[in-house]
Every structure is written in structure tokens, then in C-alpha cells.
Nucleic acid binder design. Structure first.
Lengths: 230, 230
DNA sequence: GCAAAAGTGTTGAGTTTACACCCATGT
DNA sequence: ACATGGGTGTAAACTCAACACTTTTGC
């Protein structure tokens, strides 16, 4: 049985970036070969025989888009026998998070065309990749409540409103600004920075904060049940 | 690249059962072939080329132990290049939950030796299977808070104390009996049964309840944020 | 009657929600 | 001066945590 097994394995990534103006965006690359040629798909590809899965994902993201994510986590393996017309191909799907300042695509750098698309306005997708993206967001909705992943989508210094709007986008509901600040500051998770946001497009410049990871791990180790968002 | 890829894929299961006397138990089967011959490992094995992953798991559990789980969910894929001495073998790991009344092993039925082991007193394990079991429990700790998976580990009719002790075991802390009952009944998730527990080993016979799944989906659809346990 | 587990309410503390006005900046 | 988003406090509702005695059964 093992001798006759012929299953190929890809490692693919749902790479996300977020800002309050555009919402959540996903990194797609245009396929230049069949199957699904010219459709958009997730960056990713076949894993090398002796290569760890995460390496494969980092490599493929870099090769196809020139970007480097700062957070990467595997979340599900897609294995329906007919999901790839070439035969049995498993897709070990990952989510990657990237900060806005590191998300700029230098077009034409790679040999593939890569673009950011709004997660809620996807083009026609190759394979089952629309389903993979949906599953990635479900996964994040579970994790964001108790783990400080949101900060992986924000620059090192950020206004509270950006954090708030990220949660609003993900859970698709409005959040009271005052209550949100009370909660997040009450936990002591944000460190006030000297600077304020320069040249806001409109309105009063916002105070910038950074994530206090030491405080967070301290709380976790003390056994406090940390719920960032409910 | 894809042509030369040679990666094999197994689907394995961390099958769990629970009761308040013995705690959480995991189903292991004794390996009868190398590598790791005579060590204990998770039920599972190579996926057939055209076989869905879940099917493979159900098949292997049945063949190796004679049991059928009533809940099965994939939770992580283990892919370290050196985790199997035979070469590159990915393990798509699942958790299976089974009710106590369906968990009796008919020894000698299969050709492999299968046994239930207390999760906190594992024998020496094959491959990275100890790590897989730990990851399964971490996964369940995330899911049990908001999803009604606990009921998959209890018989159709169960005393509240059994549910409570399951949560106590998983989160490793004591829970106040009165507060727990208030919460769970407050949500309206349990239906009182006619019967009481017959012949308790000691003490007053407990009222039996069943899980009210309709009520649960109703709450979910109403958009109520259902937190079974905090 | 004794041992063992089940059942049951109240109170105080803490948390969550709802809500509206002034502030700092760019144009 | 006006438009835009940022910053801030309080009171009421609700939820959570702590706590002990009585009941039902088997032996």
C-alpha cells in the first residue's frame, strides 16, 4: 500500500494585510501555467522532499511575490481527492500576516503577477482557494479573541483606532470606542509612544501605541484568562 | 519539481473517551511492524490515492480497533522531514471523540493489539505521537469553550456532574457545582430526562439530562455569543 | 446511622454596556 | 469656521464568584 501511494503535497498561504481604509486584503498571484491558467490563486507550491512545510511556504511567498510575512501558522489541510485536476494533491494551508509597511509589492520583480485583493471582493479563484481563504478567516476569528495576533497585522506603532477597526472588520460589528479603549488599556497591553500620528488625512492626530508583549506573557503565565475581545 | 516529489501521507487519529472515574483516555494500538515495533502509536495509516482523508481515518480506526467514533475533526498536519525514519511522511492528524457506551474494545477482534491509556500516563510512544496527542488537547481546549463538543464525549443521557468533570479535567481546575449548573441551565442547553442514574456506585442517584442541540443552533443563529465555559 | 454524591440561593464584586461632548488638526 | 476623526467618564444592568447545608441513596 505505501509503495503505491501517489499523493503530492503543496504548501500554500493565505497572506493577509489590513488597514482601516481598505479593510482586509489577501495576496494572490496570477497563475501562468495550467491548470486554472490566468486565474488567481494563493501563493504556494510543491514542497521539496526534505523541506519543512513552513520553509516551503516562506520560499514560495518570496519567489512569487517578493514579500516576507512576519507571522505564519498552519491551519488546515485540504485533501478532497478531486480538488486538483492533475491528480491527488494535498494542500497544507497556512495563514500569513504582514504589517502594512512591509506589504508593498514591487511589481515586475518576480516573474509572476501578484496583487492584493479585498477579501470581500475576490476575483475568480483557482482550485478550492476561495474556500481556503474562508477557512483561514474562520481560524483567525477563533484565535484573535485570546491571542495577540492582531498586532502582527499592525505596524510597530499604531493608533488604537486601527486595532479597533481590525476587530470590527473581522467580527463584522461595531465596537464602542470608549469601551474598547478601557478594556485594552485595562489589561495594560499597550505602551504609549512619544509620537503621534503625523499628517492624518483628516482630523486630530492620534496617539500611537505599541504592543506590550512582556505584559501579555506575564498575564498568561500568571494564569489570568486573557480575553482580548469578546 | 513536482515529478520528483516523494512524500507519503498518513491520516492518524487521537481518539478520546472520557469518564469521571478514569479521566480522559486515548486509544492506542501496539505497532506490530517496524519502525518503532512494539511501541504504542495512534491508530492511522497511509491514505489511499483516491480516498478522502476522513474516510482513511475512519477505516484505520475500524480496522485497528473495531471502534467507530461519532465525531472526527482534522486539527493539524505534522510534517517535520525527519519525523519518520522511512523517509518523508506527513501525518494529517485528527481528533476523534467517542461516547463511553461505544468505547468498549473487543480484544482479539482485530489483528492488532489496542488499548485505552490515560492521557496523563502514556506509555513510550512511536514517532512524534506524544506531541500529536498534546496538540490535540490544546486544540480541544480552544474549541470546547464555544462549541458543544463535550457532548460528543458523553452518552446521550448524562448527569451534569459528568459534564462538569469533563471541563474540570480539560482545563485542570476546579469548578463550582452550583455556578456551573446555573450557567449551563441558564443557556437552556440541557433537557431534563425522566430517568435518574440507576445504581450509582455511591450516593444519591443523579438526574439525567440530554444536550438540546436545537436550542444551541438557535442561539448561534440569533447571533448570541455562546460561551459554554470560561 | 453513616458515607457518598446530588441538589439548591443569596450576596457582593466586578465587568460590560450605553451614551455625548469637547479637542486637535488640515483645509 | 468647518469638517473630520481622536479623546474622555459615569451610571445602570448584568454576570461572575464565593459560600454551606440538606437530600437521597447503598451499605
Amino acid at each position: 500500500m505505501p509503495v503505491h501511494q501517489h499523493i503530492r503535497v503543496t504548501a500554500d498561504a493565505v497572506v493577509l494585510r489590513f488597514n482601516s481604509k481598505e479593510g482586509m486584503m489577501v495576496l494572490l498571484s496570477k497563475r501562468s501555467i495550467p491548470p486554472h491558467i490566468f486565474k488567481w490563486g494563493l501563493p504556494g507550491g510543491f514542497v521539496q522532499n526534505d523541506e519543512p512545510l513552513e520553509n516551503a511556504v516562506h520560499r514560495e511567498i518570496r519567489d512569487e511575490t517578493g514579500l516576507r510575512v512576519n507571522y505564519l501558522e498552519q491551519f488546515k489541510t485540504f485533501g478532497a481527492p478531486d480538488r486538483d485536476p492533475r491528480g491527488r494533491v494535498l494542500c497544507v494551508a497556512h495563514v500569513g500576516l504582514i504589517k502594512p509597511s512591509a506589504a508593498k509589492l514591487t511589481l515586475g520583480a518576480g516573474n509572476k503577477e501578484a496583487r492584493w485583493y479585498p477579501v470581500r471582493e475576490l476575483p475568480q479563484m483557482a482550485f478550492d482557494h476561495a474556500e481556503v481563504i474562508a477557512a483561514a478567516l474562520d481560524h483567525l476569528r477563533l484565535r484573535f479573541r485570546h491571542e495577540p495576533l492582531a498586532f502582527e497585522l499592525l505596524d510597530a506603532k499604531f493608533p488604537v483606532s486601527e486595532l479597533e477597526k481590525l476587530y470590527e472588520w473581522l467580527y463584522d460589528r461595531m465596537v464602542d470606542r470608549r469601551n474598547f479603549q478601557k478594556k485594552i488599556h485595562g489589561l495594560g497591553l499597550l505602551t504609549t509612544q512619544q509620537e503621534k500620528l503625523k499628517h492624518p488625512l483628516q482630523g486630530r492626530p492620534a496617539q500611537l501605541f505599541s504592543f506590550n508583549r512582556e505584559k501579555f506573557t506575564e498575564l498568561q503565565e500568571k494564569g489570568t484568562f486573557v480575553e482580548i475581545f469578546s
